[in-house]
């Protein structure tokens, strides 16, 4: 059966570009992503906090979540949802690692550079 969403994996960085338990910002077309190194895994979400657009890539990582550096809204990096009873959601992007490189699967409609 053909994959309904054709894959569009884009190499974005070396694994070593992000320190352990930290995030880094990535601009891709008109998008701004935050990519996190959680040790076992890497996760990617939209960089801007749904609360006041704080840069999530600069937040403190706690397990699979991050605290926005501006007002501490906690975002679950696996679902993109706000935790602690907060409101809002950010988009998540699939990440895979091949030969020490990080690839992100962008939706097909996303404009490239």
């Amino acid at each position: 059966m053909p994959d309904p969403k054709p894959e569009s994996w884009q190499a974005v960085a070396d694994c070593g570009s992000i320190p352990l338990r930290e995030g880094r910002r990535l601009k891709y077309g008109d998008k701004e992503l935050a990519l996190f190194n959680l040790g076992e895994t890497y996760l990617a979400v939209d960089n801007r906090c749904p609360h006041r657009q704080g840069p999530l890539a600069d937040g403190i990582v706690a397990g699979n979540s991050v605290f926005c550096p501006l007002h501490n809204l906690r975002i679950d990096l696996q679902t993109g949802c706000a935790m602690n009873g907060g409101e809002g959601k950010v988009d998540c992007y699939p990440v895979k690692i091949v030969d020490g490189k990080l690839y992100i699967n962008f939706p097909k409609s996303t404009p490239g550079r």
């Binding site: 190499a11 990535l26 091949v98 690839y103």
Partner: peptide
């Protein structure tokens, strides 16, 4: 911040 590789051979998949 992360910067996309300029080398297009780094692209994978479609």
């Amino acid at each position: 911040e992360l910067v996309l590789p300029t080398d297009r051979s780094a692209l994978m998949g479609a």
